[in-house]
C-alpha cells in the first residue's frame, strides 16, 4: 500500500514539475522545476530497491542542473519572463504533441502486451553497487569504456578551447591591448 501511495505521489509531482519546466516562461521556474523533477525521479529508484541508482540520480542531476543554472544566470535575467515569439503556435503544438504521443506509444506498447520483464532482476545477497558493477564491467564493458573515452576527449577539447588565452588576464589588461572591447563596440 505504501508503495502504491508513494508511486502515485511521486508520479504526480514529477509530471507537474516537468509540465512547469516546459510551460513556464520564467527561466528560474523552469530550471527549479527541472531540478525538483530530476530529484523526485530518484524516488522511483528507491521504490524499486535500486538505492544506488537513486542516489546516483540525485548526485548527478544536482551537479548537472546546477551547471544549467550557471548558464541561465549568464544568459537571462532569471527573475523576468522570457519573451518568446512563436510564429505558428498551432503547428508547433501539433508537431510536438504528435512526437510526444509517438514516444509514449513506443514505450508503453511492450507493457500493454505484457512482454516486459527485468533483464537483471535484483538478486538476494548481492548489493546494488556490486550488481551494477558486475554488469558494467562484463557485458557493457565496451560501451562503458567508449563513453569514458568520449568524456575524456570532450574534457580535453573543452580545456583547449577555453584555455587558449588563459595566461592573459582580462582584468589586468591595459587599454592599448584591449582587442575584445574594441571589437565589441564597433
Amino acid at each position: 500500500m505504501f508503495e502504491a501511495i508513494a508511486f502515485y505521489t511521486f508520479s504526480a509531482i514529477t509530471i507537474v514539475m516537468f509540465t512547469i519546466t516546459v510551460m513556464s516562461k520564467n527561466a528560474l521556474y523552469s530550471m527549479s522545476a527541472l531540478a525538483a523533477g530530476m530529484i523526485i525521479i530518484s524516488g522511483f529508484f528507491f521504490l524499486l530497491d535500486a538505492d544506488f541508482l537513486g542516489v546516483v540520480q540525485i548526485i548527478v542531476y544536482t551537479g548537472a542542473v546546477m551547471a544549467l543554472y550557471a548558464f541561465g544566470m549568464m544568459f537571462f535575467d532569471t527573475t523576468r519572463e522570457v519573451k518568446e515569439s512563436i510564429r505558428a503556435p498551432k503547428l508547433v503544438f501539433l508537431l510536438s504533441g504528435m512526437s510526444a504521443l509517438l514516444l509514449v506509444i513506443a514505450l508503453v506498447a511492450p507493457i500493454v502486451s505484457d512482454h516486459i520483464e527485468p533483464l537483471y532482476p535484483v538478486v538476494e545477497g548481492v548489493e546494488n553497487p556490486q550488481a551494477v558493477g558486475i554488469v558494467l564491467f562484463t557485458k557493457y564493458l565496451v560501451p562503458f569504456e567508449v563513453a569514458a573515452v568520449m568524456l575524456l576527449v570532450a574534457m580535453i577539447s573543452g580545456i583547449i578551447l577555453a584555455g587558449k588565452k588563459m595566461d592573459k588576464s582580462l582584468t589586468l589588461k591595459t587599454d592599448g591591448e584591449d582587442e575584445f572591447q574594441n571589437g565589441g563596440s564597433k
Binding site: 527549479s32 531540478a35 530529484i39 538505492d51 542516489v55 540525485i58 544536482t62 532569471t78
Partner: peptide, 26 residues
C-alpha cells in the same frame, strides 16, 4: 538504513546547496 548511506548523505547535502542558489537567484 540505506545500504548506500555515504552516497545518500553526500548527495542530499549537495542538493542542499540549491537553497543558497535559488535564494540568490530569486
Amino acid at each position: 538504513d540505506v545500504n548506500v548511506g555515504v552516497l545518500f548523505v553526500l548527495g542530499v547535502m549537495a542538493s542542499g546547496l540549491y537553497a543558497p542558489l535559488l535564494a540568490g537567484m530569486a
